[in-house]
Amino acid sequence: MTATHRLAAGPPVAQWHRPLLWLAVAMAILVVVSIGGMIVDGRVLAGLPIWAKSVKFALATLIYAVTWAWLIAQLTTWRRVAWWAGTVAAVGLGLELVVIVIQIVRGTTSHFNFTTAFDAALWNTMGLSIMGVWFATVLVAAALFRNPASDRARTSAIRAGAVLSVVGAALGMLMVQPTEGQRATGSSIRGAHTVGLADGGPGLPILGWSTVGGDLRIPHFLGMHALQAIPLVLIVLEFAARRFPVLRSAAKRQAVVLVAAASYGALLAVLTWQALRGQSVVRPDSLTMLAVGAIAIAASVAVVVIVRRSGVRELSNPVVVGGVR
């Protein structure tokens, strides 16, 4: 099997990283249990049904676990390092969800909570587990740079997605510092998702992202899921190449993927800047709109130039989608 086929289809599920797969199964069960909790448990915390938090975190963890379990199974270099790093990540994420569920059952928040010694111990445990997961993810991402595929576009998509995912995870550290108001009042809650207002105000349905203030969860969430978003761009390009011959060049697909990754990174920077200014994502000001518009225009122009450019060397490897030529 060629490297191109390996990245398209990959090894059988039975060969994927087993601890991450078990974590994914546990998260799928937790999603179902949490949805049931939302139905039978009417408690509300920070403006949302109390079990909504475990639904969101379990879904995000499930996606993370499946993606990395698949990628680790395809490595040929640094595979043992990546396997252990993936195992550390699986344990850390599992521990994080255990803390979240414990606090949901107790009827209180899991993040930033120093109300009692027990609450503080749980939050500190979660914080250590999150740091462990981040460092483990960095190691696995580094392993991806030691395992290029024969198709440069796929290599670029996976590497760019991994790097942006690591950056997105690191953006979560912006939330753990106590706000000025919390310092002034000696609050037992030290840290916040929302900038400019207290957590728990009006927010988007399900997600809970603030509609009246800045929300650091937005760039954090979108950054972490770049690992799925950027390769998805490549998948779309590969399907489109069946109808548009210009996209059959792996070099052109790679160039478009790099433009998409750069644009995604620029958007994360704008969203972080917007949140830090205390501005809601649904109420952008003219500066934010100008920045987003500039990113969109630059990306569109770059893609048009790439597609229309002649003389790009065609690579020999054909487009493979789902392992089928």
Rank of each mutant, 00 (worst) to 15 (best):
L20I: 12
L21P: 09
W22P: 03
M27A: 14
M27L: 07
M27N: 12
A28M: 08
A28I: 09
A28V: 11
I29N: 03
V31C: 14
V32A: 14
V32M: 10
V33A: 10
S34H: 01
I35F: 00
G36K: 02
G37H: 01
M38P: 00
I39Q: 04
I39S: 00
I39V: 04
D41C: 03
G42V: 06
G42R: 07
G42W: 04
R43F: 07
R43N: 11
V44W: 03
L45N: 04
L45I: 03
L45F: 08
G47S: 04
G47P: 04
P49D: 08
P49F: 10
W51R: 02
K53Y: 06
S54T: 11
L59Y: 01
L59M: 14
A60C: 15
L62D: 02
I63G: 02
A65F: 13
T67L: 15
T67A: 14
A69M: 14
A69T: 06
W70N: 15
W70D: 15
Q74N: 11
L75G: 12
L75K: 11
T77G: 13
W78F: 09
R79N: 07
R79M: 09
V81R: 10
V81A: 14
G86L: 11
T87Y: 02
A89D: 03
A89V: 15
V91F: 13
V91W: 06
V91R: 05
L93H: 14
G94K: 11
L95D: 09
L97N: 14
V98I: 15
V98Y: 07
I102F: 03
I102R: 07
Q103W: 05
I104P: 05
V105G: 07
V105D: 08
T108R: 12
T109E: 10
S110Y: 08
S110K: 05
S110N: 08
S110F: 06
F114G: 00
F114H: 14
T115C: 09
T116G: 03
T116K: 05
T116M: 05
A117W: 02
D119P: 03
D119S: 06
A121P: 00
L122S: 02
W123C: 02
W123Q: 00
N124T: 00
N124P: 00
T125W: 01
M126C: 01
M126L: 11
M131A: 15
G132H: 12
W134R: 08
W134V: 15
F135S: 05
F135L: 06
F135Y: 06
A136Y: 04
T137L: 10
T137S: 15
L139W: 03
V140P: 08
A141C: 12
A141M: 12
A142F: 03
F145G: 13
F145T: 01
N147E: 07
P148H: 12
P148R: 07
P148A: 10
A149S: 15
S150C: 01
R152Q: 07
